[in-house]
């Protein structure tokens, strides 16, 4: 990598890493893991900068890479189950604001969803992407995205209610 390419990668990191880390944090529920995934994503994309003729496409590439890395992380490490067990065991934090408990329940509930449902919800609700773009990223049809979001939200409501009841 030339000095110029290194500089370009550093510049892209400064511009895009915060938003990428937020997305990775939504997908993993873990700040440190999110930062690691983002660094992995930039290392991967470094090799493709030369071929990236459309600079405007970088954020789309980055988003797709983050989603893929998060998915493979959960698949490869097989940590989803243990992570879910761990987070399920965490007592919900209760703060001063009356809604804080419910908000924590929603956050932990989201992290307990299957990774594809969670990804679809985060891309639709947090990133505000159209169904077609989410479908492109997940490699499925827009109808499947609709169904993943709707099933995810239904499960989330059940999680939150049962937590609230318990």
């Amino acid at each position: 990598m030339t000095e110029g390419e290194g500089g370009r990668l550093a510049e892209l990191y400064v511009r895009h890493s915060a938003e990428a880390t937020r997305l990775a944090y939504m997908l993993t529920g873990d700040r440190q893991l999110a930062e690691d995934l983002v660094q992995d994503a930039f290392v991967r994309l470094a090799g493709r900068l030369v071929h990236l003729r459309d600079p405007g496409a970088f954020d789309a590439y980055l988003r797709r890479t983050i989603v893929n890395l998060a998915n493979s992380h959960f698949r490869r490490k097989r940590v989803e189950r243990s992570y879910l067990d761990r987070t399920a065991a965490e007592p919900p934090r209760v703060g001063d604001a009356p809604d804080t408990g419910r908000r924590d329940e929603l956050w932990h509930g989201l992290q307990r969803l299957p990774v594809r449902q969670r990804t679809a919800i985060v891309l639709r609700i947090y990133e505000d992407l159209p169904e077609q773009r989410v479908a492109d990223i997940l490699g499925c049809r827009p109808g499947t995205v609709r169904s993943l979001v709707s099933r995810g939200l239904a499960e989330l409501r059940i999680h939150v209610r049962s937590d609230g009841d318990g």
Binding site: M1, G6, L9, A10, Y13, V14, S17, A18, T21, R22, Y25, M26, R31, A34, Q39, F42, V43, A46, G47, D99, R102, R103, L106, W107, L110, I121, V122, I125, Y126, L153, L156
Partner: peptide, 27 residues
């Protein structure tokens, strides 16, 4: 409420992040 939760959690991540030297080496 879920959208607000996500925005609140997103706000925990600093806006500007230093470039990790190790990442550049790996790249």
């Amino acid at each position: 409420q879920l959208e607000q939760v996500l925005r609140d959690r997103a706000a925990e991540v600093p806006h500007v992040q230093d470039v990790p030297p190790r990442m550049l080496v790996r790249a």
